[in-house]
Amino acid sequence: MPIHLIWGDDYEGSNREIEGIIQTLIDPAWKSFNYSQIDGNDPKQNFRALEEVQSAPLGNGNRIVLVRRSPFCNACSIELANKLEQTIKLIPDNTYLILNNSNKPDKRLKTTKLIQKSIQSNPLSTEKSFVLPLPWDLNGQRNLVKNIARNLNLKINHATIDLIVESIGSDSSLINTELQKLALLSEASNDNLNTNGEQEITKNLVEKLIQNNSTNALDIASLLLQGEIIIALNKIKSLLDSGEPSLRLITTLTGQARGWLWVNLLDSEGNQDVKEIAKLIGIANPKRIFVIRKQIQGKSFEKLLGLMKKLLIIEALIKSGTNPMDAFKDNLLTESKIMTNS
C-alpha cells in the first residue's frame, strides 16, 4: 500500500516530483489504463479514487492514482475518513496513491495520522514538502537552488548559489529552467564533469547567461523608479522580443522594488546596520544597501509602494495568461505620475 504525500506552495517543485514518480513507475504503453488523476475538490471523485486504488495494474508496470487538492490531510469528511480507513489496508503493493495539496497536513486529523503511520511503515511510501521560501529568507532561497541543482545532478558552490538567488529569487520554475540552460552551456563549453558524473555550474557561467539579462532588468527598475515609463516600456519590449522570460523579468523587478520598500521602511525606523538590513531583506551582499539608499533618496514610501502594487498586478496578470507586454503597458501607463519624482 504505497502512498506518496506531497505538499507545499511550490507547485513547480511538487509537479516535478510527481512527474518523476509517474515516469519511474508507469509503463508508457499502459499509462492510459494505469494512471488516474482525481480532483480532490469533488467529493464524489475522492470516493472514486479510493475505489480505483484498490485495483492492481493492467499489463506491465504499476498503477498510480493521483489526487490533486487532496482533502485527506486537511479537510476530510467523516464519511471519506471512514472509507480511507477501510481502503488503506487493501491497496496492492504495485498500486500507488499520490496525495497532493498546497497546504501543510493537519496532524490533528485522524486521517493524517493514519496516512503518516502508513508511510512510516512502508519503505515504498514517502512524504515530501515543497515550500517556497519567503522573500527575506535568504537561507531558504539558497536551499531551494541547492535542492533543484541536486535533482538535476549539478555541482554548484556557495558563491554561485548566492548569485542565482540575487538574479532570480525564489521562483522555482525559473531556477529549474535556468539551471538546465546553464548545464547545457557548461556541457557545450567543456566536459567539466567531476568523479560523481555531476556537471559543474560556475559563477562565470551564471554571469554570462543570467546576470546580463538581470542587469538589464535592474536598469528598467531604475527607470520605473525615476518615472521614465516610456523608456522603460521600450526596454521591456526589447528584452521580451529577445527571448527574455516575462516571469523572470517581473520577478527581478518586484524583487528590486521589494528591496527599496524594505530599506526605506527600516531606514525610517532608524536602523543603520547594513548587515542586519541585508539579512532581513535577503540580500547576500550588504554593500548593496548603500546602492539602494542612493537609488531611493528623495522617494517617499507611498511612491515605492505604488510601484510595488503595479508590479504585483502585472505579475498576477502574466501568470493568469495575459500578454506580458499588454500587462506592462496597461498598468505602468495608468496613473504613472505616482512614480514620478517629487
Rank of each mutant, 00 (worst) to 15 (best):
A49P: 01
L90F: 13
W30G: 02
L109F: 07
T112W: 10
T95A: 10
K113V: 14
K110M: 08
L109P: 13
V67A: 00
P57I: 14
A29K: 09
K110E: 14
S36Q: 11
K110W: 03
V53A: 06
A81K: 06
P43G: 03
I91Q: 06
R63L: 13
N62E: 15
C73N: 05
N82Y: 01
K83G: 04
Q37S: 08
E52N: 15
L97D: 00
L25V: 01
Q120I: 03
Q45C: 07
S36K: 12
S32W: 08
L50I: 11
V67Q: 03
Q37R: 13
D93C: 08
D93L: 14
N100A: 07
K110F: 06
K44N: 14
I38C: 00
K107T: 15
I78E: 12
I26T: 01
T112N: 11
N34M: 11
K110G: 04
K89V: 15
I38E: 03
P71Y: 01
K117P: 14
N82A: 15
Q37I: 12
R68F: 00
C73R: 03
D39N: 03
P57L: 09
L99Q: 02
W30M: 10
L58S: 14
N74R: 07
P43C: 01
K113H: 11
S32M: 08
L66N: 07
S32R: 06
Q54I: 10
I26W: 01
L90E: 05
D42E: 10
L50A: 09
I91W: 06
N34D: 04
G61S: 04
F47H: 07
K44S: 10
S55I: 11
K107D: 12
I26C: 01
K117R: 11
Q45A: 06
